[in-house]
Structure formats: structure tokens, C-alpha cells
Amino acid sequence: MSEWVLSAVLTQLRQWPALVRFQDKSVWAHRQFEADTLAGKRVLIIGAGAIGTEVARRFDVFGASSTLVASRPRKGVLGANSLPEVVPGHSIVVIAAPLTEETRGLVGSEFLKLMDDNAILVNAGRGKIVDTDALLVELVAGRLRAALDVTDPEPLPDGHPLWAQQGAVISPHSARTVPGTNRLCYEVAAVQIAAFLRGEQPPNAVEHN
């Protein structure tokens, strides 16, 4: 998952969608596009579990700084109630949170308006966390970019306007689909079940307010 997030962001910053379109037309597009670097970028990561913290670690290697947000604050992690203050000033916003009543529709029009111009929204969580219609408004206007592994609706139907947005990169809920993933999932599941059988709270349990 963290590899997908990193690759999705680099794909947008380095303008690979535009480059592939140039390649399809056999165009040597030297200086015909504006690439950017991850170094020095500020990244807001919503969801500070195993995925979110690993995403932050990988961004750190590239010289980007991460702000982690969870449902409640803890050391090194801000609480969700701080989002209105912290969203501005981040070039990249990564959704790595589970779908709960608190996160459903979290990224709506007001949230998106707080994002910096030309910022990238990355959704590696669940489609229903993001208001698709509100995101489309920003994409059509060209103010924001997006990298989406999940959508609402999902699967994204043929003819949906998200497909036509050149500012969006879409993968079919496949961020985790690489060799060895099932084995890792079973290992995690075994740890969760063992904790439950011991009468303990499984370490990956999602807490609800």
C-alpha cells in the first residue's frame, strides 16, 4: 500500500500521464511539461495506523515531511479536530484511514477548498471517505489533482466523468495486489485472532467514538 501511494504521487509530480500521452502520439516533449519534485513537500496523512506510518517513513526518504492525523491525538499524531487548521500548507493529502461513521464523507467540498492550489489528493483508504461530486468540481476546474485507488461508486462505471479527468490517475482498487500480499494478510489475521482468543483487543482494531 505504501509503495502504491509513493508511486502514485511520483506519477503525478513527474507528469507520467502526460508523458504517456505524448508517447502515444510519438511526440518528443522536451520542455513541454512541468515536472516537480517530492523533496521539500509537506504531506498530510489522514490515518496513522500501519499504512499511514509506513507511508510517512517512505516519504521521509525522499526529503518530504509528513503530518499524521488520527481520530484522536497522541504523541506525534494530531487529532481529526485539527484538520481545518492543518490542511492548508500541504502539497499532498493522503487518505489511509478506514471507513467509519466519522470518516464517511470527510473529504467534502469544504475540506477540498482548504487544500492548496495544485495539491494532490491520494485516496488509498475507501471511496466513500471522499465526496466524488465535490472532487469532480475541483478536478474539472484544474485546481486539484488526484490519485485514486478507490472510488465512490466502485467499480467506477463506464462513462463516469472521473475517467475523463486528466488531473486524475485511477487504479482499480489494486494497491495491495502484488505477489506475497495474501501471505502477509494471513499472518496479520492470525495475530488478530490469537489476540481475540486470549481475551485481548486485536492490535488492528478500529476504535469508534
Rank of each mutant, 00 (worst) to 15 (best):
Q201Y: 04
P155F: 03
S66C: 15
I193E: 10
R143F: 02
R176E: 07
T181V: 12
V55Y: 05
G47N: 06
K75G: 15
V130P: 02
G63V: 06
I51Q: 05
C185K: 12
V107C: 01
V107R: 01
I92N: 02
S65A: 13
S109P: 00
V122K: 02
V137L: 09
G180C: 11
A56K: 06
A29M: 10
G127D: 01
K75T: 15
L99G: 00
D117M: 01
T11D: 07
D117K: 14
G52N: 02
P73E: 12
H160N: 06
P203Q: 12
Q12K: 14
P155G: 03
G159I: 08
G63K: 10
L112G: 09
V86Q: 06
G159N: 03
W4F: 08
V191T: 15
Q192S: 11
V5E: 04
A134M: 09
Q166N: 13
A8D: 10
N118G: 01
A70C: 09
Q192A: 12
G108T: 06
E154V: 05
L68P: 07
R21Q: 13
L106E: 00
V140S: 12
G89T: 04
A146D: 07
L44Q: 09
V5Q: 02
P17E: 11
R14Q: 14
Y186G: 12
F59A: 09
I193Q: 10
D36R: 15
L13I: 09
V122P: 09
L68E: 08
V61A: 15
T11Q: 13
I193C: 07
A164R: 13
D36K: 14
S109Y: 07
V188P: 01
N81D: 15
L13K: 12
T37G: 01
E102Y: 00
F111T: 09
P203Y: 10
L68T: 11
Q166K: 15
A64E: 12
A134V: 04
L162Y: 11
L136S: 03
R104D: 01
E101W: 00
I95K: 00
L19Y: 10
G105W: 05
I46G: 02
A146Y: 09
S91L: 00
G199D: 04
W163V: 04
D116W: 08
N123W: 06
F33R: 11
I46C: 01
C185F: 14
V178N: 07
V122W: 03
S91T: 05
L13C: 07
R104M: 00
V140Y: 03
L38C: 14
S109R: 15
A195Q: 15
G127F: 03
R143L: 01
H30I: 13
A70D: 14
S66P: 10
R104S: 00
A64W: 11
R57F: 03
T53L: 10
A175P: 05
E200P: 09
S7R: 13
P17G: 10
A205E: 04
I129E: 05
I51Y: 01
T151S: 06
E54A: 15
R183W: 08
W28H: 11
L83F: 07
P202W: 09
